[in-house]
């Protein structure tokens, strides 16, 4: 069966995202758009993932996915998806938080980094500035995600900044990726031609920083069932 997805969404915890992109609003928007899968992937944090899962319980057709958009030491954005909330939080606490650049956020300049519960109650603000590159390279980060049972893929490889191809010029020998993500589906033919990619393994996510930018049911994955294990297992099979 084919299931609609958007595996790259930012909440109000990302400083550059709208403050009304709360976990509850994002879950609601994903449901309205009739997405089967929606992944919350804030910059260098999974701090709102638990609330996003709680909020998604209100929408029976929606499968929430626990994620993070990590900025690696090469300044490559990597979408990291996990089997569940616990693994995502373990990744943040054990792997990412210790290697964040020790710079505090300046909400007036960069935007607020708001942690919320599933009812839009503000729980607090993340003090570490979440935008700078973390001190972990692409290969180590990918291995750490996989060690937790998750899967990682390079984000928006068609963009001139923070994308794997703009930073590294070409795919590195390691790590090997199955899935890759583009910001604009119209760039897929060019990327397929230039980098010998399999078009069936290219994801088109919104990278939404505003509620209105969440994808509609436009891009689909063929899966036996709409579950996170089935999703991760598909991505694993792509890199086998």
């Amino acid at each position: 069966m084919r299931f609609a997805y958007d595996l790259h969404l930012h909440s109000c915890l990302s400083p550059c995202a709208d403050d009304d992109a709360t976990p509850a609003n994002l879950a609601g928007m994903a449901a309205v758009q009739e997405l089967a899968f929606a992944a919350l992937t804030d910059h260098n944090t999974c701090g709102n993932v638990r609330s996003f899962f709680e909020a998604a319980k209100e929408h029976p057709g929606l499968v929430p996915v626990a994620g993070m958009e990590l900025c690696t030491s090469e300044e490559i954005h990597l979408v990291c998806l996990f089997p569940g909330v616990e693994e995502a939080e373990r990744f943040e606490e054990g792997t990412v938080r210790p290697v964040r650049v020790p710079v505090k956020n300046d909400p007036a300049r960069f935007g607020r980094q708001i942690k919320m519960d599933a009812e839009d109650t503000v729980l607090g603000e993340e003090e570490d500035w979440l935008i700078p590159a973390a001190g972990i390279d692409l290969e180590s980060a990918t291995e750490a995600v996989r060690a937790l049972g998750g899967e990682a893929f390079p984000a928006h490889i068609d963009r001139p900044s923070y994308g794997l191809l703009s930073v590294l010029g070409m795919f590195p020998a390691r790590p090997r990726f199955g899935a890759v993500e583009v910001a604009k589906a119209e760039n897929i033919p060019r990327l397929v031609a230039e980098h010998a990619l399999d078009p069936a393994k290219i994801l088109a996510d919104s990278d939404a920083h505003r509620l209105m930018d969440v994808n509609g049911a436009e891009h689909f994955l063929d899966l036996p069932e709409p579950t996170v294990p089935a999703l991760l297992s598909l991505f694993r099979s792509w890199r086998a």
Partner: peptide
Amino acid sequence: GDLLSRVMSHAKAGNFWVTIMANPNVVAV
């Protein structure tokens, strides 16, 4: 330069190339 996509299209043969990129793709480029 550090953005290897730029280096690939702008650096020239014989250049003294300075970068802070530590990835193996530096060698490929």
